Simulated assay, not measured.
Amino acid sequence: MLHLLPRIKTLAAEAAADTVALRQHLHAHPELSFQEFNTAAFVKEQLEKLGLHPQPMATTGLVVLIEGQNPGRRVVALRADMDALPIQEQNEVPYRSRNPGVMHACGHDVHTSSLLGTARILSQLRTEFEGTVKLIFQPGEELLPGGASLMIQEGVLKNPAPASILGQHVFPLLPAGKIGLRAGRYMASTDELYLTVRGKGGHGAMPEQNIDPVLVAAHIIVAAQQIVSRRANPKLPSVLSFGKVIANGATNVIPNEVKLEGTFRTLNEEWREEAHGHLRRLVEGLAESMGATCELEIRRGYPYLENEPQLTARTRAAAEEYLGAENVVELDQWMAAEDFAYYSQAAPACFYRLGTRAADGRFAASVHTPTFDIDTKALETGPGLMAWLTLRELAAED
């Protein structure tokens, strides 16, 4: 197997300019979650040019197989997401978004073009490996219920079922040419919280005649933090944040209701369920004790993301072969969420981070910002590395 490593690097280098062009096309034509019709058509066209036969799933998703020798020996799945964000791009580059208010600010154009590059490499090596590679191009990572959940519901992890699944995500904190990974619990579950506190509005100068929902909401915001500080195991990361408060009164007007929006995140599904119950009892009971009511809607988001330890160890070892040990770093837990977590709950999974910052510090803007961009060196590293990881995983015995 090691004899293929230099060949993969050569193929990745030869394809790099085309991979960059694919990414720039995708970046210039972003589409929002579950609206990736043109994106999916473009990806389908690129796959067909490689002699592959992609099949549609979950409206704008695609799945395609690359079969090597002895296709039934082992199946490895690779995933990329295709949707963009509702952000107005501020980069002044030739490939800036042509769709007002929509931008690939989370790097999904990188993920998609990189996986297309991997498909190109693996297609050229079909006679050199045994097993089957399943490529998953999914919609809607940025929007509940998450495209991954819909792809799984439609059977993307069946017929054939993968022994493992790999995914990558851009990471501007790391220079291009490096990757980061972490075994075990890596990313958080995420739930959206919507609260409506109802009281009795009136003149601000006569509070005794009113039930002030603003005051009740303020107590709820403060008291709810005890869910994390006093109910959660201190060894288990949990986050409870309120980012939106709407109280449409005035300087002298107490409103009838206040709306709150927030998020709850953790790394344990049992505690997640328990915390939901604690929060509901707290907000309803506190509001009642102050003469008001509180309605709480919890919209369940993605589960926590688990990198299977043995698979992650194999991925780390293979990445060190390809990049050198100095270019493979250990990541900390991250309380952001990713719908790749659904795959990790259904099959052995490894989700790693692809460095995209330039060596001179350029391209350091965070994801989900209007100035996010990448060092194109990542588009040579990403496809080649994933091809190598795939071949190593196809050759694994367990």
Rank of each mutant, 00 (worst) to 15 (best):
G177A: 11
G184F: 00
P172L: 05
I152M: 11
H219K: 10
R231H: 13
M187S: 02
S164R: 02
S149P: 01
M206T: 12
G146I: 09
V228K: 06
A223E: 08
I221S: 05
P145E: 05
L125D: 15
S149K: 08
K158V: 15
V228S: 07
L157G: 10
I121M: 03
Y186L: 07
L143Y: 10
L135R: 02
I211V: 15
G177N: 09
R126F: 05
Y194R: 14
P162M: 05
P207G: 06
E142Y: 10
A224T: 15
L122A: 02
Q124N: 10
S229A: 14
L193W: 10
G177E: 11
A223G: 04
N159V: 15
S123E: 01
V197H: 04
Q138I: 11
L135K: 04
Q226L: 08
G146Y: 03
V133W: 10
E141A: 15
P175I: 08
Q168V: 09
I121Q: 01
G155Q: 11
K134V: 01
S123F: 08
F129R: 10
L150E: 00
G199N: 08
P160K: 14
K178D: 12
V214I: 15
T132Y: 07
P139I: 14
I179D: 13
V170N: 02
I136Q: 11
A188I: 00
S149C: 00
V133N: 12
I152D: 11
Y186F: 08
S149H: 00
S123Y: 03
H219W: 06
K235E: 13
P237Q: 05
A163Q: 11
Q168A: 08
Q138A: 10
A217S: 13
P160I: 15
V222L: 12
G140S: 15
P160Q: 13
G155I: 12
S123R: 08
V216D: 04
I220A: 09
N159T: 15
K235I: 13
Q209I: 01
A218T: 13
V216N: 09
I221C: 06
S189Q: 02
G147N: 02
K200C: 13
T190L: 06
I211F: 04
Q226W: 06
G140R: 11
I221L: 14
Q209H: 07
D212Y: 05
N210I: 02
F171K: 00
E128A: 15
E141D: 11
L193P: 12
E142N: 15
Q124R: 08
L157A: 10
P234N: 05
V156M: 09
L166Q: 02
V133I: 14
P145H: 04
A188G: 01
P145G: 03
T196A: 03
G184R: 00
A232W: 06
Q153R: 14
L173T: 14
G184L: 00
S164A: 12
L157S: 13
I220Q: 12
F129Y: 15
G199P: 08
L122M: 06
S123Q: 09
A183L: 00
V222F: 02
I121K: 01
D191N: 05
L135G: 01
P139E: 10
S123L: 06
K158I: 14
I121V: 04
A183K: 01
G180S: 14
S229W: 03
T132W: 06
P160G: 14
